[in-house]
Design a protein around this nucleic acid. Structure first.
Lengths: 255, 255
DNA sequence: CGAATCCTTGAACACCTTCAACAGGGGTGG
DNA sequence: CCACCCCTGTTGAAGGTGTTCAAGGATTCG
């Protein structure tokens, strides 16, 4: 499908953009500035047509074939439990990779679902590995990215293990704020693409608690919230809140 | 130092053993059965003399130079918080790797401390990367191992996010049980090398709760416990307990 | 043997959850 | 266009689980 005319609808420009023209390329797989390497990488990447809110990128148990870079929109990853519940394991913004946890067993251990209309780049893993044979920096970057992922999970562990409800929500909001900023968006005003339920699930809290926290944060003048729309009024105080007892930052270096 | 005569003291046999003679080699970096590759790997590995209980393998902020494979003993990794507390991020048994989270920033983001007299193999990372250029299976294994690590952190997230105190302790005990079994030890009888405090910290509980849980588990006939010594009496019931509400297994495939 | 540390036990409390009811959008159909 | 319903989100009150605080017992190591 050739490039379509731009419109004010969200996302059509994402259909066919080379890596070198993508504002996110240094986030998702920063292969170095070498143009040649970038084109090699570009050559193996498939763009998929946007997936709609609620559709799955992959399900638990799907064979592992590719990792995915979010181009626009957002993805939640989660693992369903036997009894029909789920544990949300992450929210993924543009420039972030999804599917790294499937390398181990060649099977996706979690599911990935679009929180809104989302487009992704599909990066066939076998071809990526082939490529990494020839590009040392790519090889190193791959390990680095996975290491960062481990690091991220560890900060999350800290959050769930040591922080109370206030600190958890504050940490999540700061994480999102920082990641949006890094992508050129406002650090203080954004829309949450996930439901209160997802937030609570991710943070180890129930919906009601999350809801109460939002109202309280608003009452205390930390932020304003209307449905999905968040406007942070006092970043400093939010920071202080996030670390009030124990160590801080959720996802210190963006993914 | 040449190989010393075996004795009934824990650990002297570990001083100088080639990878091919090491009972753990398929656990730590299973490079395939190819003897040649194994010897290459062997050639870059340094054995360090045993470190004593309480000594550090590395501290937070140390420059990243090598990853470590536990040969005998056990290691805990943790990240200290500003206010002098810490978050334990993992317990590492023989055959498991430590330090993978340092690749990202070339700095160790956590500290590693011996829980008992422990010997490790030091694997210089730069040389490992060089080696991986020539050995495709090693390259793949590295990614696989890191993927497994991510997976493990995710099950931990599930544990901290969704499980109650009973389920958490049961999950940890089962994880240890399984990992010991995989290393040729008893699945039902072992010594905990970590303190109650470490266990609580790791599981997101306070010491008192852990202590009460152990006594209750004992009262209920699940196990017997005398200080560090654990004897599991009813593995099935422990399994049932670990998964009573939500999804299960901590560290499903050993590391 | 003494000191320090680790572990255990008890009672009161705090925080978050559970249960329940209601409010407000957003979509569909009459 | 409004009525209706469903789903998501909000708010209140009661309850439970784990924490905190406090004290005593056990073990190790100098």
């Amino acid at each position: 499908m050739p490039q379509t005319k731009a419109s004010n609808i969200i996302d059509l420009s994402a259909i066919r953009v080379a890596c070198k023209d993508c504002g996110l390329f240094q986030l998702c797989l920063p292969v170095g500035i070498g143009g040649a390497d970038l084109e090699l990488l570009d050559s193996i990447i498939k763009r998929r047509r946007p997936i709609k809110r609620g559709e799955h990128l992959f399900q638990v148990g799907d064979p592992f074939q590719a990792i995915y870079a979010v181009r626009s929109g957002s993805i939640k990853t989660y693992v369903p439990t036997e009894d029909g519940y789920e544990q949300v394991t992450g929210f993924h913004l543009p420039g972030e990779l999804v599917g790294l946890d499937a390398i181990h067993a060649d099977i996706h251990p979690c599911a990935a679902k679009a929180l809104e209309t989302t487009s992704v780049c599909e990066i066939p893993f076998e071809r990526l590995e082939e490529l990494s044979e020839r590009i040392p920096t790519l090889r190193h970057q791959l390990l680095k990215i996975m290491s960062r992922e481990i690091l991220h999970e560890q900060t999350l562990l800290m959050l769930l293990g040591k922080k109370n409800a206030d600190e958890r929500l504050a940490s999540l909001l700061l994480s999102l704020s920082g990641r949006y900023q890094q992508r050129g968006f406002s650090a203080t005003e954004f829309n949450l693409s996930m439901s209160r339920n997802d937030i609570g699930n991710y943070l180890g809290l129930v919906v009601e608690t999350v809801s109460r926290l939002f109202t309280r944060f608003q009452d205390e003048g930390l932020l304003t919230v209307q449905r999905k729309h968040i406007r942070i009024l006092d970043l400093d105080r939010l920071h202080a809140l996030a670390c009030q007892s124990r160590s801080c930052n959720l996802r210190p270096n963006s993914e």
